[in-house]
Amino acid sequence: MASGFSFLRTQFPGLEKTGEFAERYLYSDSNSCLFKLGLLCEDIVNKMFDFDNIAMPYQMKDTLVNKIRLLENEEYITEDLARIMHRLRLGGNEARHEGTDSLQKAKLLLPQAYSLCEWFMQVYGDYSYQHQEYHLPTEQAEAAFVETAKDKAEEARLRKQDNEKAQKAVPLPQQERSKTNLQAANRRPKTEAETRCLIDEQLRQVGWEADSTALRYSKGCRPAKGRNLAIAEWPTDKVPGNEEKGYADYALFVGEKLVGIIEAKKWDTDISSVISYQCKDYARAIRKCDAEYLLGQWQDFKVPFVFAANGRPYVQQLQTKSGIWFADLRQSGNIPRAMAGWP
Results as ranks from 00 to 15, higher is better:
Glu192Phe: 10
Arg96Asn: 06
Leu15Met: 10
Met60Leu: 05
Ile335Pro: 12
Pro13Thr: 06
Gln278Met: 01
Glu23Lys: 06
Asn181Cys: 05
Glu243Tyr: 03
Leu109Pro: 09
Lys36Arg: 13
Tyr76Met: 02
Thr320Phe: 14
Lys61Pro: 14
Glu74Tyr: 15
Ala224Trp: 10
Asp126His: 11
Asp80Thr: 13
Ala193Leu: 13
Leu39Ser: 06
Gly241Thr: 00
Asp50Ile: 14
Ala82Arg: 03
Leu294Asn: 13
Glu20Val: 02
Glu256Arg: 11
Ser272Phe: 03
Gly4Tyr: 12
Asp211Cys: 00
Lys152Thr: 00
Phe51Gly: 14
Phe35Val: 09
Lys67Met: 09
Lys17Arg: 02
Arg157His: 02
Ala251Cys: 01
Gly92Gln: 13
Thr213Ser: 05
Phe12Trp: 05
Ile199Arg: 09
Lys67Leu: 11
Glu139Met: 13
Ser6Glu: 07
Lys280Cys: 03
Ser272Cys: 12
Val306Asn: 00
Gln104Met: 09
Ala224Tyr: 07
Asn93Glu: 07
Lys219Val: 15
Thr236Ser: 00
Gly260Lys: 03
Cys117Thr: 14
Ser102Phe: 10
Gly19Tyr: 07
His97Phe: 14
Asp290His: 04
Gln104Val: 14
Ser30Met: 03
Leu70Val: 12
Ala283Glu: 10
Glu192Asn: 03
Asp80His: 11
Ala264Ile: 02
Glu154Trp: 07
Phe7Ile: 04
Gly220Arg: 08
Leu71Gln: 05
Asn310Phe: 05
Gly207Arg: 02
Arg24Ala: 01
Trp342Met: 03
Lys160Gln: 09
Pro343Ala: 01
Phe305Asn: 12
Ala309Arg: 02
Asn66Tyr: 14
Asn186His: 08
Lys257Thr: 14
Arg204Gly: 13
Asn66Thr: 07
Leu64His: 08
Asp29Thr: 11
Pro235Tyr: 06
Val303Met: 04
Phe305Ile: 07
Ala327Phe: 01
Lys168His: 13
Ala308Phe: 08
Arg24His: 08
Ala169Gly: 10
Tyr129Phe: 11
Ala149Ser: 04
Asp101Phe: 10
Gly125Lys: 15
Gly296Tyr: 00
Phe305Gly: 05
Asp62Thr: 11
Leu110Val: 15
Ser6Pro: 09
Gln112Glu: 05
Glu176Asp: 14
Tyr282Phe: 03
Lys17Met: 01
Gly226Arg: 12
Arg196Thr: 10
Gln297His: 04
Leu8Met: 10
Asp162Lys: 13
Asn228His: 13
Arg188Cys: 08
Glu139Lys: 06
Gly99Met: 08
Ala149Leu: 04
Ser273Tyr: 12
Arg312Ile: 12
Cys279Arg: 01
Gln122Gly: 00
Asp328Asn: 01
Tyr250Glu: 01
Gln140Pro: 14
Leu39Asp: 14
Asn186Ser: 14
Arg69Gly: 13
Leu215Ile: 07
Cys279Trp: 03
Gly255Tyr: 15
Gln205His: 07
Leu172Ile: 06
Leu116Ala: 13
Arg96Glu: 05
Tyr134Gln: 11
